[in-house]
């Protein structure tokens, strides 16, 4: 179980995350929604310590994550897989190697430098390839793949880590609707079949409503909403997005995708 307790992050004068407290049970699929700049990304990055909290603490299964250092911190990062909006693969290496890299958190330095993986790990990699439908592209350089495929490679890499929790930072923001659907269903499958907790920040309500067990809404660094998709009323949405006219995509980066991810009028005005 993940416990975030009074966590804040200040950058000079700006407060990105202000006193956030949250509990996430094992096996939940939690979606974090909010405008860009609301602190979603920063919050996720504090969980695996890519960003340091300025105050507060984070506990996972009784371990105080915020106090970890050195090899303990590495071990925690190996257990908590992160999926990035820009995939963050190694472009010039092939897909299979990228996936195998998911295991290096568990190896010593020297063996991993020479790519000494066990047979069991290689079998895992092949299984991940199969599961995410990447067999055909296994030996292509990662940079030659489409966005959707690259994100699936990232998910395969995350699977190799045998994670206790997956932190997904806007995983579909750079993808077209069809690939976005594929990626979200893969994540849902991982959540369902492997029982892995997933914390996913999203910029469309539709995706949040469709895939998440719980939704957390953030605005100006604070949590302003917590509940099930059914609880997400018009008023709640309004408060989260603070008067944004369009309820669909409110991200500055990506243009509103057409098709199934755009809000349907009847959903937006549905009562609680």
């Amino acid at each position: 179980m993940l416990v975030i307790d009074g966590v804040s992050r200040r950058f000079d004068t700006k407060t990105a995350v202000a006193n956030v407290s949250l509990r996430v049970e094992r096996g939940q699929f939690v979606g974090i929604i909010g405008r860009s700049g609301a602190g979603k990304s920063t919050l996720l990055r504090m969980i695996n310590r890519l960003v340091e909290p300025t105050s507060g603490q984070i506990m996972f299964d009784g371990i105080e994550v915020t106090k970890l250092r050195g090899s303990d911190l590495r071990a925690w990062r190996a257990r908590s897989a992160m999926i990035f909006q820009q995939f963050n693969l190694v472009p010039r290496l092939d897909v299979l190697t990228n996936i195998l890299l998911g295991r290096i958190g568990r190896h010593g330095t020297l063996p991993s430098l020479f790519m000494r993986f066990t047979d069991a790990e290689r079998a895992m990699a092949v299984e991940a390839l199969d599961r995410l439908d990447l067999m055909a592209a296994a030996f292509q350089r990662a940079e030659t793949l489409s966005g959707g495929q690259q994100q699936r490679v990232a998910i395969a890499r995350a699977l190799m880590q045998e994670p206790s929790i997956v932190l997904a930072d806007e995983p579909i923001a750079s993808l077209d609707p069809r690939n976005a659907e594929h990626v979200m269903s893969s994540l849902k499958a991982i959540n369902g079949e492997n029982g892995i907790t997933i914390l996913c920040s999203l910029h469309t309500l539709e995706a949040a409503r469709r895939y998440c067990d719980r939704i957390v809404g953030m605005a100006n660094g604070k949590v302003v909403f917590e509940g099930t998709p059914a609880d997400l009323t018009q008023a709640a949405v309004h408060e989260i997005y603070q008067g944004e006219e369009r309820e669909g995509d409110v991200s500055d980066d990506v243009a509103a995708p057409a098709g199934w991810l755009a809000p349907r009028p009847e959903v937006a005005s549905a009562p609680a």
């Binding site: 897989a81 290096i104 990232a154």
Partner: peptide, 19 residues
């Protein structure tokens, strides 16, 4: 970006440089 990705999965400094 690849460096960030590797750090996030628990890669040590030497491994991150290498990969």
């Amino acid at each position: 970006k690849p460096v960030e990705g590797l750090r996030a999965l628990g890669s040590g400094w030497v491994q991150t440089m290498r990969f």
